[in-house]
């Protein structure tokens, strides 16, 4: 290149490179915030087609219906009401609208179903002689069945803690792992615990992500594996995982993983689902919005957004509850004894 051309080239590049890369902006008005929220979900939400097939979700129709409810002078509280109701149409427990004053939640995934879990019953079963290790409580029942309670996948667990628990109950005939009312947390904890129940690398499911703005712009699937925790204590006897409708998100992922393993049986109610990995964004008025962005499928490439059926469906019976009996735990004990006898 001739030296004299360099300044000209630099000048041209300077002009080209001074153009700004910006995102489309919306005004901080009821209409601007509505448009921003609708567009964020339209571009990034990951279950439009699935939910359209399941219950007729039509995001364009929702735009028309909810836009009519806006007015330039509406209060912030009224706007929050409209926008949160619009998000409820997604029927997604991972979707929240968050202002400084309040947070919206979709709760029908468990509100419309039996609780199938009781703190009162859990206190009766755990008693006072349980052990707490790595955010898990456990004890050995009189029939030599170990009962392990994990309340949240957000709670930290360590490999050493899992070693200690599984070593401590190693003489038991079977294990009940209770993740009812476990609303999820870290997927890495799901992976870490499931790794203690398999001797072989097993396909746990698949994950996709959006690659563009269209409702169907998805990547090719990434395979998710459950890899055995080598050089660690691994459980080799029958296991029952207890579930209810509030077994959600990472806990749902854990059930997805465990269902593929040979010694594992799921007992209780259908899980609450929540198979979309959530992401966050925000509106011009500073409200935050959270929603599902990356769909996860089970090993048979089936959606689990609306839950996973148990192998054995059991509900807590009122008569049992009144006598301090957890029908689901008792069903698990009976199942394990039958399995051991075989």
């Amino acid at each position: 290149m001739k030296p004299s051309l360099l300044p000209s080239l630099l000048l041209a590049l300077t002009l080209i490179c001074s153009s700004c890369i910006r995102e489309t902006t919306f005004s901080d008005t009821p209409e601007g915030n509505f448009e921003a929220l609708w567009r964020i979900i339209d571009r990034q939400y990951c279950f439009f087609d699935y939910k359209s097939a399941q219950y007729g979700l039509d995001w364009d129709d929702i735009y028309q219906r909810y836009k009519q409810r806006l007015s330039p002078t509406m209060s912030s509280r009224a706007l929050f009401q409209v926008l949160s109701e619009m998000l409820l149409e997604l029927r997604d427990g991972h979707t929240n609208l968050i202002s400084t004053a309040q947070t919206s939640y979709y709760t029908k995934w468990y509100d419309d179903y039996p609780a199938n879990y009781s703190d009162t019953l859990q206190r009766i079963y755990l008693g006072t002689d349980y052990v707490t290790t790595s955010s898990m409580q456990y004890k050995v029942f009189q029939d030599n069945i170990a009962y392990l309670r994990y309340a949240s996948f957000s709670s930290a667990i360590s490999e050493g803690g899992l070693d200690a628990i599984l070593s401590d109950v190693s003489l038991c005939d079977g294990l009940i792992l209770d993740i009812r009312n476990n609303g999820g947390g870290l997927l890495t904890n799901s992976e870490k615990i499931a790794a203690r129940f398999t001797n072989e690398k097993t396909i746990a499911g698949y994950m996709f992500h959006k690659t563009g703005y269209g409702h169907n712009d998805f990547s090719s699937p990434i395979t998710i594996y459950t890899t055995p925790a080598n050089s660690r204590v691994r459980w080799q006897k029958p296991v029952v995982v207890l579930t209810n409708r509030r077994t959600f998100s990472s806990a749902n992922d854990f059930v997805c993983r465990m269902k593929q393993l040979p010694n594992v049986t799921i007992i209780g109610d259908r899980t609450g689902g929540g198979s979309g990995l959530p992401t966050s964004s925000e509106l011009p008025n500073g409200w935050s919005v959270r929603f599902s962005a990356c769909p996860m499928f089970d090993a048979d490439m089936q959606q689990t957004e609306f839950g996973i059926d148990p192998d054995i469906k059991v509900d807590i019976q009122s008569a049992d509850f009144n006598q301090g009996i957890d029908t689901i735990i008792e069903a698990a004990r009976q199942y394990l004894h039958k399995k051991i006898a075989q």
Binding site: Q44, C46, T188, M207, K210, T211, S219, L277, C294
Partner: peptide
């Protein structure tokens, strides 16, 4: 990362 790709992925 890709448009909607999580770091977990």
């Amino acid at each position: 990362p890709e448009y909607g790709q999580a770091y977990y992925e």
